[in-house]
């Protein structure tokens, strides 16, 4: 039984997850593009690559903007979180090896102790985000159940991955949890607020264009 579940989540489910993620993301892009063409032509009329990149550049560089300097802890955590979140799943040795086994493609991977620390960083960061949602009233006010669920969905694959890697109790069951939660995370990205990952370049780029080209002002 365990085995069947395992081979399902390791096999077809992976395909499903990746397909949902890619097709979902593409769908979101295309439908937004169409919608924008129809009702927000202003976005295309005023988009400027130079000013878009200028703004994006300032927002993906730690402490480049005023608000990042105002919230140093959040800035450090957010950057660590996003870097680790992005790097670990792709460069974890176990993941790379799986790719190698399945499709015979591979790339350099992280030494396991480093990955281990990065996973812990992600978890700590999630705790930090969770704490913000509980203790900062301006964040609490904006938080609804879905924010906690999404945060849990983000933390789950990391916690379970750490668990399974260290082979704590019932780790093979936890391994399944890890895989499933990772797949769920991948699948919900296009359809929840996690889509900020997809749309960030566009929202920031558009505002950067308006601020730069039309209003001759900074937006960071």
């Amino acid at each position: 039984m365990m085995h069947e579940i395992f081979s399902f989540v390791r096999g077809p489910m992976v395909w499903i997850a990746f397909t949902v993620f890619t097709v979902g993301s593409l769908y979101r892009f295309i439908s937004m593009w169409r919608l924008a063409k129809k009702k927000d032509s202003v976005v295309f009329n005023y988009f400027s690559f130079f000013y878009a990149l200028r703004s994006i550049g300032h927002w993906i560089f730690p402490f480049a903007g005023v608000n990042m300097r105002k919230h140093p802890a959040m800035t450090v955590v957010a950057f660590l979180f996003h870097i680790c979140l992005f790097v670990v799943p792709i460069f974890l040795s176990a993941h790379v090896i799986m790719f190698k086994e399945s499709w015979n493609i591979s790339w350099r991977w992280l030494p396991d102790p480093a990955a281990d620390i990065m996973v812990m960083i992600v978890i700590v960061c999630c705790l930090f985000f969770w704490g913000r949602r509980i203790f900062l009233k301006e964040v609490r006010y904006l938080t609804s159940v879905s924010d906690y669920l999404i945060l849990a969905a983000v933390a789950a694959p990391f916690i379970s991955g750490l668990w399974a890697y260290h082979q704590w109790t019932a780790f093979s069951a936890v391994m399944i949890v890890h895989i499933i939660s990772g797949e769920i995370l991948l699948m919900i990205i296009p359809f929840t607020k996690l889509s900020h990952m997809l749309f960030f370049p566009f929202t920031r780029g558009y505002m950067g264009s308006e601020f730069g080209a039309v209003r001759h002002a900074k937006d960071w």
Partner: peptide
């Protein structure tokens, strides 16, 4: 008629982080 991609993306992209609070003099 008028609720377009900007409205949609702004509403959905907001991660409810509250970082905008400090910008607003009302707050």
């Amino acid at each position: 008629e008028e609720g377009g991609a900007r409205l949609k993306i702004y509403m959905e992209t907001c991660v409810h982080c509250g970082l905008c609070s400090d910008a607003c003099h009302f707050y």
